[in-house]
């Protein structure tokens, strides 16, 4: 049961994140299924346009403001969000399972006295109850769980809800100024590897393993990913060889991803690699070894030399 749903919408650098819009879409769906109210909350920043939130189904938006909230502070965000949830009587909170969502939501759970299920990849609704699917053992098994406490928090893995088309809608925004923000934990600097898309958030990933032969050959994967609007990932063998940064590693000790399309180039498909990407909606494998385990989970496979196949793929996609 839930009466009031609150969706936490994350801003970074005054921009609303795509994974949060997916969470907004989830919130709208929850509200319909549970016959509940839904609203969204944005903390900090200087946001020009909240209409994207309305366009994905949640018109009611509160913007909590204080200059100490412009940059992430887990202590401050947890405080203002919990206060707001208590004031509005929200009993179901949704977060994206992003770096911020995962840092913040457990603290909010304790503050508002909620049960929490992190990293959900699907939901069903039965008699007004939410049943969440949470992968365990690196996705080698799935659990169906429900929260029995009156207050509930779910964090949702990026790409679980596809954004689809935006409706034409305008947000009703109320601004809430707060004071005495607790900044005992404060972000003082952000270093960006670059402006590149993170594999954990990308809806298309082109990933390269030991079969790439060396760091210089990733240029063609960058080109392919660029054409597709995706990100480049890597296996641990490529990361351990120093060809790619650890932040690109997909797998059990790297990132867990579920893009719409995962293209594995020169990756054998070790159990720890597959653990991190098996929930991808479509998997393409390019590997010269027809016995490579990656083919057991690939939707489409080419058992050939990636140094021929990848350039041909780039040319074919350029044709449009």
């Amino acid at each position: 049961m839930a009466n009031k749903i609150l969706v936490f919408v994350e801003q970074r650098n005054n921009e609303i994140k795509k994974s949060s819009l997916e969470t907004v879409k989830a919130g709208a769906e929850f509200a319909k299924e549970l016959n509940a109210e839904v609203e969204a909350v944005v903390v900090g920043g200087d946001i020009a346009d909240f209409n994207s939130i309305a366009k994905y189904g949640v018109p009611k938006v509160t913007h909590i403001k204080n200059q100490d909230l412009n940059v992430y502070t887990s202590s401050g965000y947890a405080q203002v969000l919990s206060d707001f949830a208590n004031e509005t009587g929200a009993d179901l909170l949704l977060f994206a399972n992003s770096a911020m969502g995962r840092d913040l939501s457990p603290r909010v759970a304790v503050k508002v006295d909620a049960g929490i299920v992190a990293d959900c990849v699907g939901f069903t609704f039965e008699n007004g109850e939410v049943i969440a699917t949470h992968p365990v053992y690196a996705g080698k098994a799935l659990t169906d769980v429900k929260i029995n406490s009156p207050k509930k928090i779910f964090t949702i893995r990026p790409n679980t809800f596809n954004l689809g088309d935006a409706a034409d809608a305008t947000a009703e925004v109320s601004v809430k100024e707060v004071d005495n923000v607790n900044t005992s934990v404060k972000v003082v600097d952000i270093t960006r590897a670059s402006d590149k898309l993170d594999v954990a958030e990308a809806s298309i990933i082109v990933s390269g393993g030991r079969g790439m032969g060396g760091p210089e050959n990733y240029a063609m994967l960058e080109e392919l990913a660029g054409l597709l609007g995706g990100a480049v990932g890597a296996s641990r063998a490529a990361v351990d060889a120093g060809w790619r940064p650890h932040s690109d590693q997909v797998g059990q000790t790297g990132k867990t991803v579920s893009p719409n399309l995962y293209i594995a180039c020169g990756i054998s498909g070790a159990i720890q690699h597959m653990a991190g990407m098996r929930t991808s909606k479509y998997i393409v494998a390019i590997n010269k070894d027809p016995e490579a385990p990656i083919f057991t989970i690939a939707d489409y496979g080419i058992t050939g030399d990636l140094f021929e196949v990848v350039p041909a793929l780039i040319e074919e996609i350029k044709k449009g």
Partner: peptide, 9 residues
């Protein structure tokens, strides 16, 4: 607070 209903492959 969380009840495990079912584990599956």
């Amino acid at each position: 607070r969380v009840e495990l209903l079912k584990m599956r492959k």
